[in-house]
């Protein structure tokens, strides 16, 4: 390790400022260590296992084992019949639930960023606290809330919005409620961040130039919130694509989603090759989503913010 004080680098590049000189200094072993140690750890316990899954998805399944190969048979199975229906249903669920989540989250984020005043920190904390209580217990509590004779039924009957017993549990609606509920906090946060950064004078200018509140929202606020919208969709739709607990607890036996289907290939059927192919399909769906969202925010850097 050579001691290379920044002053030498400054002499070597007299034109550059101090910051440039620091950046141009030769990499030291400490910097490489900081990058290498976590990379190696993640390569071993994250990238390598994912690699195994990709390789196995092309293998031949034997009883509880996989013979390595280069076959597309698993993908053929995963993209036909029951498995295809499950895959498409999962994508449809994730997209719909993510959109619902966004619709619920946007006014909340807007309120915290623009209207909450000195209570904004408290408001943000309130949004985040539930996210740190046990996820499983919260979903179990939705079973109690949605059950026949439960709280929701009583409230709806009281408000005369519904009459008689409510059969929500073990339906699609219950799964949507559970998904919107679970991922609402992580949809609100990125939306809050972008809405918070939109300068107030920009909105005033829009109104001074004669735009109504709705026109300002549609023409100024919404386009500037695009990166936050993209992040919110990403952070909600991705875990929804792999969700296996909510559908099982709230959706009953009907409407199995991809997460459960993959799990059962590994835990019950012991068909690792087919399970791997289904996992890779989920990853491909995620990649398509990321690419689509990247288009949504494309050229955003050129928009003055």
């Amino acid at each position: 390790m050579s001691a290379n004080p920044p002053i030498d680098a400054t002499v070597a590049h007299p034109g550059g400022g101090r910051a440039n000189a620091r950046r141009a200094a030769p990499a030291r072993w400490v910097d490489h260590g900081f990058a290498a140690v976590p990379t190696l750890w993640l390569a071993l316990f994250f990238l390598a296992p994912l690699g195994f899954t990709v390789v196995y998805s092309f293998g031949n399944s034997l009883f509880g084992a996989v013979e390595l190969g280069l076959t597309l048979k698993n993908y053929q199975t995963a993209l036909s019949g029951f498995y295809l229906t499950t895959f498409l249903r999962t994508v449809q669920f994730a997209v719909t639930a993510s959109a619902l989540c966004l619709i619920v989250a946007f006014p909340v984020a807007y309120f915290i960023a623009r209207k909450a005043g000195r209570f904004r920190t408290l408001a943000l904390v309130l949004i985040l606290v539930p996210y740190f209580s046990s996820f499983l217990v919260r979903v179990m509590s939705w079973q109690i809330l949605l059950a026949r004779g439960g709280v929701i039924e009583t409230i709806l009957n009281f408000l005369h919005l519904h009459d008689g017993p409510l059969d929500l549990l073990d339906t699609k609606t219950a799964v949507f409620i559970g998904m919107v509920y679970t991922y609402l906090p992580i949809a609100i946060v990125p939306l809050f961040v972008v809405l918070d950064r939109i300068p107030g004078p920009l909105l005033e200018a829009s109104r001074d130039l004669g735009a109504s509140r709705w026109q300002t929202f549609y023409a100024v606020t919404l386009p500037l919130a695009r990166p936050g919208i993209a992040t919110a969709v990403l952070l909600t739709a991705v875990p929804m694509l792999g969700e296996m607990v909510i559908p099982r607890l709230l959706g009953g036996s009907r409407g199995v989603l991809m997460g459960q289907a993959i799990q059962s290939q590994y835990m019950q059927s012991q068909n690792y090759a087919l399970g791997s192919a289904m996992a890779v399909l989920v990853l491909i769906a995620v990649a398509i989503l990321v690419a689509a969202l990247a288009r949504l925010t494309k050229g955003f850097a050129t928009v003055p913010a």
Binding site: F52, T53, Y266, L283
Partner: peptide, 19 residues
């Protein structure tokens, strides 16, 4: 790390350790 669904990580690790 943040965009791979947990179920995919779970089965991949199970496979990885098994192999």
């Amino acid at each position: 790390l943040l965009i791979v669904p947990e179920v995919v990580i779970g089965v991949s690790l199970l496979l990885f350790y098994a192999v």
